[in-house]
Design a protein around this nucleic acid. Structure first.
Lengths: 315, 315
DNA sequence: ATCCTCAATATTATCGGTAACAAATTATTC
DNA sequence: GAATAATTTGTTACCGATAATATTGAGGAT
């Protein structure tokens, strides 16, 4: 392994100059800088992160804290982890998976938190290290998420374009920010078209949505599309309609949200919002590392939603 | 953060003595050792891994090299990674995901390799850092795997106990060690019972197994059980039998192998071997870290298979 | 020419450990 | 009981980087 000193010798400067070329290039004359760059190239120099970490008193560990229950059959967290790990590995950081319980065991340089709820706010505010939240929030924490509002807005728009005349929103019975945003997207679309909003909320289980359809089958007129807040609910609606003898997509439309795994099981596949969780995970990592380096607020990083066409809307 | 020096002061010894208590406790008198332990406890001392890494010229990075294509919807690799990461995090190592292509970018302390084939042997032999293979092999590399032979042996035994009178083995058309072992398990069971072995091999796709059933439906007598080398093949067999009007499990039995995700989609669920990939991943990590510390061969670590009962065998 | 700035570069100390060597203590031998 | 060997503990140097401080040298003012 070539070190600073090797480069310094080759360039005929002190090792401090080499260090400065890397960390404060503006404080070195161009002439020397060129010499140093040249030497670094010739020796294929890569800084030793461990030495850096030692003097910076850093750990090169990032903790990923998942506050909700993990369903390992959902590739959601797999993708999130892959995305985060990709970035962290690139910078030679190590990812540590923690829960709220073992959160405080061992040091780290920063946190990525997902599944945050209102009750976690105080706790997060008191953390001493940089934090990035995966999932939108309204408490001013830096976060990365899909544009939830735009997602339902676009799906509702698409449903209307396909000729469905009534839009029923099927939401998740929860006070989380993403749910409000998804409702807001639906509402905005419906209001722009001067339609009657119809909202229902359930726990995020397919059978609850299915029951809803069966219980209200008589009131569900043909040419209705259901804008659902999750694929899970959408699958329940789809099943309910099919069991009641309704025809998808001819007489009824269904849209979901999330579309990672569940969609593979549904038939026909749900028209839904496809989130690039891997990419978003990477972004979480990048944001957090930036924040650690510069100590600067990162703000919100919002990914624009992409519609994944299934067979639950016409055409 | 308390350091060696803090502990040394408190215990009234030199920091070298503290270091020795940690790394070479046999070279320190019990008396001093007790003093030092006491001080460490009182100050809640945890060694700084980064400093350790610097002086040991280690990177605290382990590369996980997956040589086959990753299907992110299969929780297989997710679980493997979770298992490995769990162990590595505990020891403050960082996991880096690499492919054969970007394998040489950046340093590391050791490798975990999965999906190894014959053609990779020379390459692995030439690696300069400790290696543990995930998946059995016959080239003397340290590895972690399920006892593949015992798996099919047990499933075949179970099928016979349930009264199926003919056992057909449906294997994967590949020269990999695990496949030979699974065949061997079936063969041993069949030979012990002095039955005629019947082996078939296909690429690992459900539709190939399904076609096989349809093409040979006339020759497939009632009361036959299919011992398959993978869940994927088992699902194909299951579908083939059902489509041909056969009754599972009354007239036909099916067993699989692996049972991570696919099994959730099958109906009825396949009776298969359940592998605790997470645990095996942890074991890979432990083995590798041991190997890095002690430089000693770890040998093979074989997990005994557990049968996961589905609905594809009688009773 | 002398003194003073200010910028560019070099030197030194430090992060928290460990190995190699030196010193001190104890045990063994004749 | 002195000489020597063996064991235990302490000192020093070093791993590879960076911050703080010291040094050098060029240009400006007097």
């Amino acid at each position: 392994m070539t070190t600073l000193v090797d480069v310094a010798k080759k360039a005929n400067v002190s090792k401090m100059t080499v260090s400065r070329v890397i960390n404060h290039p503006d404080k070195v004359t161009d002439e020397l800088k060129q010499l140093v760059y040249q030497a670094m190239r010739e020796l294929d120099y890569h800084p030793n992160m461990i030495a850096k970490a030692l003097v910076n008193k850093s750990t090169r560990i990032i903790k990923l804290c998942i506050l909700e229950d993990i369903d390992t059959t959902e590739p959601y967290y797999m993708n999130l982890m892959i995305g985060i790990a990709k970035t962290l590995d690139l910078h030679q950081y190590s990812l540590q998976l923690v829960t709220r319980k073992n959160f405080d065991i061992g040091n780290c340089d920063g946190y990525i938190i997902t599944g945050m709820r209102e009750q976690d706010v105080d706790w997060i505010n008191n953390l001493k290290k940089p934090v990035v939240i995966f999932g939108e929030n309204r408490y001013g924490f830096d976060y990365v998420d899909t544009n939830n509002k735009a997602g339902t807005y676009l799906l509702a728009q698409l449903a209307l374009e396909k000729g469905y005349e009534r839009l029923i929103y099927v939401g998740i019975d929860s006070k989380e920010s993403f749910e409000y945003s998804r409702e807001a997207g639906y509402l905005q679309q419906v209001q722009e078209k001067r339609m009657m909003p119809e909202l229902h909320r359930f726990g995020n289980h397919s059978h609850l949505a299915e029951e809803f359809v069966r219980d209200n089958w008589d009131d569900i007129t043909k040419n209705t599309a259901f804008i659902c807040a999750s694929d899970r609910l959408a699958i329940g609606i789809e099943r309910g309609i099919t069991r009641c003898g309704g025809k998808i997509p001819d007489d009824f439309g269904v849209t979901g949200f999330d579309g990672v795994f569940l969609n593979q099981v549904a038939s026909p596949k749900i028209t839904t919002i496809k989130q690039s969780i891997i990419e978003m995970g990477s972004a979480c990592g990048e944001n957090l590392l930036d924040k650690i380096d510069t100590n600067a607020k990162q703000g919100a990083l919002v990914f624009e939603p992409k519609i994944s066409l299934g067979g639950t809307l016409r055409e």
